[in-house]
Simulated scan of single mutants.
Amino acid sequence: MATLLHLDSAVFPQGSASRDTTAAFVQAWQEQHPDGKVVYRDLAAAPVPHLDFAAASAGVDDALRAELAAELNAADAVLIGAPMYNFTIPSTLKAWLDQVIVVGHNAGIPDGPVAGTPVTIVASRGGSYAPGTPREDFEFVQNYLEKVFTGMLGAEVDFIVPELTLARSRPEMAELIPLADASRTKALDEAAQKGKELAARLAA
C-alpha cells in the first residue's frame, strides 16, 4: 500500500488553481489505487510554526520536527500545491520546509530516506514566468523548490504549472483569458494523468 503525502498552501480555500489541480491528482491517485493512503496537510488552514532556536537546536529530537520528518520520510510520493506569492512560495510552505528538513537526518546525506521519492509540485501563478517571457527572471518557485528537493533531499521533482490564473479577475489581462483557460485545462489533465500513472507505478 503506497502512501501519498499531500500538502496545500494556497490561502484561498476555494477557486484556487493549485488546490483544484492537486485535487485532480489525488482523485486520479485514489481511483487507480483505492487501497493507498493519503496523508493531508493544509498549511494555510493549519500552519506549522516558524523554526525557532529551540527546534533548530533539537533537530529531529523536537516533537513537531520528528512528526513532520516521519511523514515525509514514510511517503512513497509527495504532492505539493505551491502557488506563487510575490514571486516565491507561500511563507507557510517555507515554514514547513524549514521544520521538515533536518540536515544529517533526511537532508545533506547520501541515500537519505527521501532520496528517489517522486515529488509533484503544482506551481500555479497569476501571470506567466516561462522561459522567454518578460518576467522569466522573477520566477523563484520552481527554481527554489527544485534545488531544495533535489539538492538537499535527493528527491525526483516534477512540475505542473497552471499559468495566467488572474486573467479572469484582472481587466487588463482579459485578452489572455483563452490562454489561461487552456493552461488550466492542461494542468488538470496533467494532474489526472500523472496521479494515475504514479499510483499504478507505486502499486505494482
Rank of each mutant, 00 (worst) to 15 (best):
E139I: 03
P134L: 06
G132A: 12
A199G: 15
R184Q: 14
P162G: 02
E136C: 07
A187S: 13
A199Y: 02
I160F: 05
Y144M: 13
D137C: 09
L153C: 05
Y144N: 12
A200F: 03
K194I: 08
D137K: 14
V157Q: 07
A192R: 09
T133C: 09
A182F: 08
N143Q: 13
A167D: 06
V141I: 04
D137H: 15
K147Y: 03
E146Q: 13
P178G: 11
A192E: 10
T150M: 07
V157N: 11
F138H: 12
E163N: 13
T150F: 02
P131G: 12
P131M: 03
A192Y: 00
E175I: 02
T133L: 08
A182I: 02
R184K: 12
P131K: 04
A155S: 15
P178K: 11
D181C: 10
L166W: 06
Q193E: 14
I160H: 05
A155I: 04
E197A: 15
L179W: 01
T150G: 10
T185S: 14
E136S: 11
Q193V: 12
A191G: 10
S169V: 12
K194T: 14
L188I: 00
A182L: 08
L198A: 02
I160T: 01
P171R: 03
E197I: 04
I160Q: 02
R184C: 07
L176R: 09
T185D: 15
E139F: 07
L179M: 09
N143I: 11
R184N: 10
E136Q: 09
A187Q: 00
E163M: 12
L145A: 08
K186R: 15
E163W: 01
S183R: 00
R168S: 15
P171N: 04
F159P: 14
F140S: 13
P178H: 10
G151P: 12
A187P: 10
R184M: 13
V157D: 08
G154S: 04
A130E: 10
L153G: 08
V141R: 09
L145K: 05
P178T: 05
F149G: 10
P131I: 03
L145M: 13
L166V: 07
E139Q: 14
F140P: 10
P178F: 08
K194C: 07
L164K: 00
L176D: 10
A199E: 01
A200R: 05
T150L: 06
E172N: 11
